[in-house]
């Protein structure tokens, strides 16, 4: 009997995708029992989603929302359930909360911990082989974990979400063994939804579409944004674009901006200066669209289209929407 505990996460009434990814990993590793833990209000729709995510049992707990998202509270609960269930593995999704929680669970539950996991398998009973990118994706580290209790925090989008189960797992309401306090948990006083488009964060996205000088003017940037939207991708930019003020500095990918290593990176109208390449070269698959066939970006890209982005982008956005069954 090997039991895995998956700590779920609810945001604005929805179960985050990372929680489904974590259940998929638990199943893939051959757990005989997969148990979910979720902090959510009793009528929160995320509970029903998590119950159908492929769990054998779901524990739910209601905590004052001022404390609930504070890392110490879900960490305490996850460790409590892991001990109760005599589990050997706790998996958390690759969200901010997941990463904030992993180290705390490891201490509480006296376990080994690995974060940023992009692949994992069992080379033998009681042993885990874990793969994780390091150095901003410029290298990959493989680890062997031979410990009776292990906490894994996954990298966002590295794993697929299994299709929903036909039947919902039985639910059980539990009380945390310790009541959260402001001294122990801090207090969340407000939540401000991100302004503008609701796409993924640049640093976390599995797909990034970036625009460069080739976009020519800020009013043309919507072409890049529409392509990104068709792929549920984050939008990035080269330094030329952020320096010119076409987009805020937070969009910048590169040495002086963000380093990204998504599954797919599409560079639009970006020539490929070294300062940009450093920030994206570790992406798994790179597509470059540029008018200049000699642009250095084509040297690091996997697929290239030499052409005018003002013609290619609308056609590509339309084709992607069609291929994904979206007519909007």
């Amino acid at each position: 009997m090997s039991t895995t505990v998956v700590l779920g996460e609810a945001r604005s009434g929805r179960l985050v995708e990372a929680s489904g990814e974590a259940v998929g990993v638990a199943r893939r590793l051959g757990a005989t029992r997969v148990v979910g833990v979720l902090l959510a209000a009793a009528d929160d729709p995320s509970i029903a989603s998590f119950a159908r995510a492929g769990l054998d049992h779901l524990y739910t707990a209601v905590v004052d929302p001022a404390f609930a998202p504070s890392p110490s509270v879900p960490a305490q609960l996850a460790a409590q359930i892991a001990a109760k269930e005599s589990a050997d593995l706790v998996i958390v999704g690759g969200t901010v909360l997941g990463r904030d929680v992993a180290g705390r669970v490891a201490v509480r539950w006296n376990a080994a911990a690995v974060t940023g996991v992009t692949d994992v398998d069992r080379p033998g009973p009681g042993s885990l082989h874990v793969v994780r990118p390091v150095f901003g994706g410029r290298a990959t580290q493989e680890l062997l974990v031979d410990a009776p209790r292990v906490v894994l925090a996954l990298r966002p989008h590295a794993f697929t979400v299994p299709s929903p189960a036909a039947a919902a797992a039985p639910q059980e309401a539990i009380a945390p063994s310790e009541s959260p306090t402001e001294a122990g948990a801090g207090r969340i006083v407000a939540f401000t939804p991100s302004a503008g488009r609701s796409g993924p964060e640049l640093g976390e996205a599995s797909i990034v579409v970036s625009g460069g000088r080739g976009v020519r003017a800020p009013e043309n940037f919507h072409l890049v944004e529409e392509l990104a939207e068709s792929l549920d991708a984050a939008v990035g930019a080269s330094r030329a674009v952020t320096d010119a003020g076409w987009r805020p500095g937070t969009y910048q990918v590169g040495q002086t901006g963000k380093s990204v290593s998504p599954q797919l990176y599409i560079a639009v109208g970006i020539s490929g200066a070294i300062q940009h390449l450093v920030g994206m070269v570790s992406s798994r698959v790179i597509v470059a669209i540029n008018t200049d066939a000699q642009a250095p970006i084509f040297k690091v890209a996997d697929y290239g289209i030499v052409g005018d982005l003002f013609q290619i982008l609308p056609a590509l956005t339309q084709e992607i929407r069609r291929a994904r069954g979206r007519t909007d």
Partner: peptide, 24 residues
């Protein structure tokens, strides 16, 4: 840290000291 990118020390230390911890 930009090398192993584990991000575990802060949260684990918070738990060991019995105080809240927040990353990012």
């Amino acid at each position: 840290a930009g090398d192993d990118e584990a991000g575990l020390v802060g949260p684990a230390l918070g738990e060991l000291l019995g105080v809240p911890s927040f990353g990012g």
